[in-house]
Measured scan of single mutants.
Amino acid sequence: GAPPLPPYSAGGREVTMKKGDILTLLNSTNKDWWKVEVNDRQGFVPAAYVKKLDSGTGKELVLALYDYQEK
C-alpha cells in the first residue's frame, strides 16, 4: 500500500494524480510535499508518492507510484 501521508505543510493547493502518471516537477525544496504540474494544473503531491525520472530533456519529471486524491 501507499506510505503514510506526511502532515500537510506545503501551503498551496494539492493536485490529484493516478498511479503511472508522468508529472513535471516544479519544486522539490519541501522534503514532504513536491510541487508538480499535471494537465496544466499546478499543485502539491506527497514526495513519497512519486519517483524522479531521468528525462534527458532538462525538464524534471516524476512518476506517480500511487493514486493521490487532493483533499
Score class of each variant (00 low, 15 high):
Val50Lys: 00
Thr16Glu: 08
Pro6Gly: 02
Thr57Ala: 13
Lys31Val: 13
Gly11His: 14
Thr29Pro: 04
Lys51Gly: 05
Tyr66Lys: 05
Lys52Trp: 08
Val36Glu: 01
Lys59Ser: 10
Thr29Ala: 12
Asn27Tyr: 05
Val38Gly: 08
Lys35Asp: 04
Glu60Val: 14
Pro46Tyr: 03
Gly20Met: 03
Leu26Asn: 03
Thr29Tyr: 08
Gln69Trp: 12
Ala48Arg: 12
Leu61Tyr: 11
Lys31Trp: 06
Val36Trp: 00
Lys35Asn: 08
Ala48Met: 09
Pro46Asn: 02
Asn27Leu: 07
Val50Pro: 01
Val45Phe: 00
Ala64Thr: 03
Val50Met: 05
Ala48Lys: 11
Asp54Thr: 13
Lys35Ile: 14
Pro46Glu: 01
Ala64Met: 03
Pro6Gln: 01
Tyr68Trp: 07
Asp54Ile: 11
Thr57Cys: 11
Asp40His: 15
Gly58Cys: 07
Glu37Tyr: 06
Asn30Gln: 11
Leu63Gly: 02
Lys59Trp: 09
Val45Thr: 02
Trp33Lys: 01
Phe44Ala: 02
Asn27Thr: 07
Lys59Ala: 13
Gly20Asp: 05
Asp54Phe: 10
Gly56Leu: 13
Glu37Gln: 12
Val36Cys: 05
Pro3Lys: 05
Ala64Trp: 01
Gly58Ile: 08
Asn27Cys: 09
Thr16Met: 07
Ser28Gln: 10
Val38Pro: 00
Leu23Met: 15
Tyr66Ser: 04
Ser9Pro: 15
Gly12Ser: 07
Trp33Met: 02
Gly43Pro: 01
Ile22Ala: 03
Glu14Cys: 11
Tyr66Trp: 13
Thr16His: 13
Lys18Asp: 04
Trp33His: 01
Gly58Asn: 11
Gly12Val: 07
Trp33Tyr: 04
Glu70Leu: 11
Arg13Phe: 11
Pro7Val: 06
Lys35Ala: 07
Pro7Trp: 04
Tyr49Thr: 04
Leu65Ile: 10
Met17Asn: 01
Leu5Phe: 06
Pro6Thr: 01
Pro6Ala: 01
Pro7Cys: 12
Asp40Ser: 14
Lys52Cys: 07
Glu60Phe: 09
Asn30Cys: 09
Ser55Glu: 10
Asn39Val: 12
Ala47Gln: 04
Gly43Ile: 06
Pro6Ile: 01
Ala64Glu: 00
Ile22Trp: 04
Asn30Leu: 07
Val15Phe: 10
Gly20Ala: 02
Leu53Thr: 05
Gly20Lys: 01
Lys51Pro: 01
Thr57Ser: 15
Glu37Thr: 06
Gly12Glu: 11
Pro6Asn: 02
Gly12Gln: 07
Val45Cys: 04
Ser28Asn: 08
Thr24Ala: 11
Leu53Arg: 02
Tyr49Val: 04
Ser28Tyr: 06
Lys19Pro: 04
Pro3Asn: 05
Lys71Gln: 15
Pro4Ile: 07
Pro6Arg: 01
Gly58His: 12
Glu14Leu: 11
Tyr68Cys: 02
Lys59Met: 12
Ala47Asn: 02
Gly11Glu: 13
Lys52Asn: 06
Ala47Pro: 03
Phe44Asn: 03
Pro46Met: 02
Thr16Gly: 12
Leu63Ala: 04
Ser55Ala: 11
Thr24Arg: 11
Thr24Val: 15
Val38Met: 14
Val38Trp: 07
Asp32Ser: 06
Glu60Gly: 08
Asn27Ile: 07
Ala2Tyr: 12
Leu5Cys: 07
Ile22Gln: 05
